[in-house]
Design a protein around this nucleic acid. Structure first.
Lengths: 222, 222
DNA sequence: TCTCGTTTTACGGTTTTCCGTAAAAAACAT
DNA sequence: ATGTTTTTTACGGAAAACCGTAAAACGAGA
């Protein structure tokens, strides 16, 4: 089994159970960080000491508080950690259930497993850790197994997200066009932007821009 | 200390720590439900057996899954329980941090304490339970103590929420007017609706309707 | 009942969205 | 190079949002 494990999780109510579960797996060296920044520091130190972590278990969203932080999400933490230690195994443990998000974790960040926090998630987490140790990859909670197969969101790209974000900031189409032009983003013609928004409205079955943003917010796209 | 306590919490990773914490308080009779419906059943049975619960600790949001449920949130659960047993003490333990929401829990549902899930929430939960036992009320996590004082959201009423919800469903102002007329909600004239929306836009510093709904979504108003 | 003040509604003009069609530009294959 | 397809942009008209002003309806107090 893994020797040295790091848990990044802000909620104490959750980290207690996670750490306990890992202990029950017979892992003795377990460290825990409540902030992404602290987690990264621990990873750095472990590498420096020539005793790197075998496994990182991370949440995705972290509460913001008084403290100034560099890294603000599990995504950023994992990206930063993998830069320092590309071979580390990673398991994400989060409440997030949007296939769009989960897919990008596997494809863009190359995580090894995704376990959704739920009514029976601790046993699932255990199984996922064991599976990752046996060199399996792309482990995912049973109730979300559809997420990786789900084709429906694959055509929503960064450009669309940026467009939705601009709309949600209250910009008009004209203003977005200018903004994109200044940032060198294409297409940026008013008509193209309208067309793209129109496509999104059809895709999400939205009646108008207001409806579209409401849906995008619900899906966690923006 | 309380004799008999019920915990309503869907996430196993959290309920483990909560139950442990309550055990450490010396409470021996602790029950736990993963669904609101189950929690209500337990309350009913306890009343029938003439051994009602002294305290209910509940989460607010519960995941939906395959199971059909009557009650879908902690709000609904607490309302239903208080109907059967008005004197029961209630503590809400949730990630929610919108002052609008928390205020309504105290004012409309009459909860005794609100503890925000966070980096140090288990000790806070313990303190809150002890405080409620000593007949204190309106206990709230330190980082949210501003929420009850916060005047800013007090003038946003049910009517405004309904209006924002209608907008977020993609209805036009005309359609909302008709809808309100059919439901006997006043005012329902197009001009009045526009004026009200305009007020909301000023209040929330929104550029247009799209922006307004984006903000409302962020605040958890709709 | 009358008056004053507030709320609700009506109306008109401007801007923006919304939704077609079509031209221009770019990407691609042969 | 040349023709074809796809993408991007331009344009125009109808609908809705946007925003100010003014009339009508309502409610409380004298």
């Amino acid at each position: 089994m893994f020797q040295k494990v790091l848990v990044a999780e802000d909620l104490d109510s959750i980290s207690i159970a996670v750490v306990q579960a890992i202990e029950d797996l017979g892992i003795t060296e377990i460290h825990h960080a409540k902030y992404c920044d602290d987690a990264l520091l621990k990873v750095k130190k472990a590498i420096k000491d020539k005793r790197p972590y075998d496994l990182l278990i991370s949440d995705l969203s972290f509460k913001t508080d008084h403290r100034e932080t560099q890294l603000n999400s599990g995504d950023e933490l994992i990206a930063a950690v993998k830069k320092l230690q590309p071979t580390i195994k990673t398991v994400v443990f989060s409440i997030e259930d949007k296939s769009f998000r989960i897919k990008s974790l596997f494809n863009d960040l190359g995580i090894n497993a995704y376990v959704a926090k739920g009514r029976n998630s601790i046993p699932e987490l255990i199984k996922a850790i064991q599976s990752v140790f046996n060199n399996n990859s792309k482990i995912i909670s049973p109730e979300l197994s559809h997420a990786l197969r789900d084709k429906s969101l694959i055509e929503i790209e960064t450009y669309d997200i940026l467009l939705l974000k601009s709309l949600s900031k209250g910009l008009t189409v004209d203003e977005i066009g200018l903004d994109f032009k200044n940032s060198g983003i294409i297409p940026n013609g008013g008509s193209s932007l309208e067309k793209r928004i129109s496509k999104l409205k059809i895709f999400f079955k939205a009646n108008n821009n207001v409806h579209l943003i409401a849906i995008a917010k619900d899906l966690g796209l923006v």
